[in-house]
Design a protein around this nucleic acid. Structure first.
Lengths: 333, 333
DNA sequence: ATGCAAATTGAAAACGCTTTCATGAGAATA
DNA sequence: TATTCTCATGAAAGCGTTTTCAATTTGCAT
């Protein structure tokens, strides 16, 4: 039953050379006489020899695979990043071990450990909160780590992001400029730094710039789901909000549909701006205005940065900030 | 710079036992005196020893890693399956190497080969068309392969699916029962068996059952994108169609919005049924009626099946067919 | 021809673990 | 007490590569 496996040794014997020579031709080492190379290549072809990457990994201490920790592949925001990551990884001959974490700290640490046990050459981490436990693991890791679309207050870990504070500020300013006086801040869990430290800060700055007092009652903390957004309508109405900045597209879709279903006109009576510019913004009606982020690129650049780190190339900047934008669609005036 | 790596040998020395014994306690082999086990465990803890999975893989010929080939993680249908796959994989202590194929045959074959080189213990393949090249690779693979949400006409490869023919037939019948006489069949590429052999067959059966002649002019072949769907409105209108079965949710969203934006009332003037019951169906307005599929479960069951295959357990049925349903939302009467 | 540097090649030692097989120590049986 | 088993343990042989180092060729300038 076991399909017979051809090893480098078999090739060496058949080609009447040493394993070392076979290894050289397989790895494109130039120090091989052309005639020898040809002979070896023929045998390889004839025997259909395929190098065993595990053995190779053990001997060379390089696995050409990187670990990717993602909150949930099912979330378009993250899967967009993942796609960028995988494409660049493939371009540089790496493979990706993908693991869902559900943003659960224990799971994240555990996954990180199994990735390290598997000797990945590098790790890309996505997740909204870097706990101290996590940071500790990052440090002990001999494989470089880079954050994609995820903030680390300390700035110690290499990362690729946009300027969340500025982006949110601009988005909220836009709302205020349209005449909104009561802009809600609809957010995912506030124990995540990206919400409590970055986005909220941008929100507050925009208010301050417009001379509006910050009022906690306009801050709505919830989870990132569509349902949560939809269920928010009564609260939003009760608070008298006339616009909202929302921290996630799926959540924003929920908010939008919740309002619309309740007979509230968007953007006539209520404006909405969302954060991630995923496909979802185009699907709903009215289409959602949004902060734009180069999602695919965030992943791609993160992976590229990781390759540099893995191959000990010089990197100018460990914390890359990509440009954001503001896309006006139909949910704002 | 190199963080010092502690090996099983170090542990053995410190604990004054042999490597074999350390290996035994690490792997939970019961043939170890409790006192010895305790001693070894202490040393492991003290030295912070972590087994090297690569070395383990080489020695044991098991990597506890499975390859997953996916057309595009960014597509909610597939990412839902992927999520099911990963969860079950984790449950059984496997990790996932995820690779995007874009349904490109060459890329699929290439990825398959690198996965096999990496000695994955099994492979889950998602993709709408199993070419002969691919089938050949599956056969030569010593790692078992299972298809998730993907059909293979030959039925040779283990798989997990729903009954696409019956599901589509029922969906189309439903449309006809509502009075539609001109039901369009909006499909992805017809060179994919799932479209040309399965879904189209269900469509034809439903027509036949209703005594309606099959008319090629109602078959619209396109790619799976939102844009493609949106652009279909003029053609649909020109053909005089009054309903459509659509083979993909994103595509269906496009069709829906294209029609709506052109002032056509759905479902009043035009009914739509889509295929995958992803989140998208709930996002758009009107919400899309759809064939329901247990997406997560298809992935989960596929992975479970794979674990059985990898561990040589008996499997009753190599081709699992999960139940489908029909969910009436707002895009049908 | 002669000598020397450069180009090829091979031998063998890792890489860090699993696993088989043999052995010793008790425990159980007669 | 002698004999047989069972349980714990260790020694050492792989697993399939890469890589170092030394040895052998080869190519050229003398």
């Amino acid at each position: 039953m076991d399909k017979q496996t051809v090893t480098i040794y078999d090739v060496a014997r058949e080609a009447a050379v040493s394993m070392a020579t076979v290894s050289r031709v397989v790895n494109g080492n130039p120090n091989v006489k052309p005639a020898t190379r040809k002979k070896v290549l023929e045998v390889i072809d004839r025997l259909d020899y395929r190098p065993n990457a595990v053995a190779r990994g053990l001997a060379s201490k390089k696995t050409t695979t990187v670990g990717v920790i993602i909150p949930d592949v099912t979330n378009i925001y993250f899967s967009s990043l993942a796609r960028g990551i995988d494409d660049i990884a493939m371009m540089y001959k790496y493979n990706i071990i993908l693991a869902n974490s559900d943003e659960n700290g224990r799971k994240e640490v555990q996954v990180l450990n199994t990735l390290m046990a598997k000797q990945v050459d590098g790790i890309i981490f996505m997740g909204n909160e870097i706990t101290d436990d996590l940071r500790k693991e990052f440090e002990r890791s001999k494989a470089p780590v880079v954050l994609a679309g995820s903030v680390d207050e300390t700035g110690e870990t290499p990362s690729v992001n946009i300027d969340y504070v500025a982006a949110v500020q601009e988005a909220v300013k836009n709302l205020i400029d349209h005449g909104s006086k009561k802009v809600a801040f609809v957010s995912g869990p506030m124990d995540q730094a990206i919400n409590s430290d970055y986005r909220l800060k941008g929100y507050k700055q925009a208010l301050a710039a417009a001379g509006i007092d910050y009022d906690e009652r306009f801050v709505f903390e919830t989870d990132y789901s569509y349902q949560a957004g939809q269920a928010l309508e009564p609260a939003l109405t009760a608070a008298g909000a006339d616009a909202a900045f929302v921290g996630d597209d799926e959540l924003a879709s929920g908010v939008l549909n919740g309002l619309t279903d309740a007979g509230i006109d968007v953007p006539g009576q209520f404006e909405i701006v969302t954060s991630n510019d995923t496909k979802l913004t185009e699907l709903v009606r009215p289409k959602l205005s949004s902060i734009t982020q180069p999602l695919y690129d965030i992943g791609a650049v993160a992976m590229r940065l990781l390759t540099k780190l893995m191959e000990n190339e010089d990197v100018e900047d460990n914390n890359v900030v990509l440009p954001y934008g503001l896309m006006k669609r139909q949910s704002t005036k």
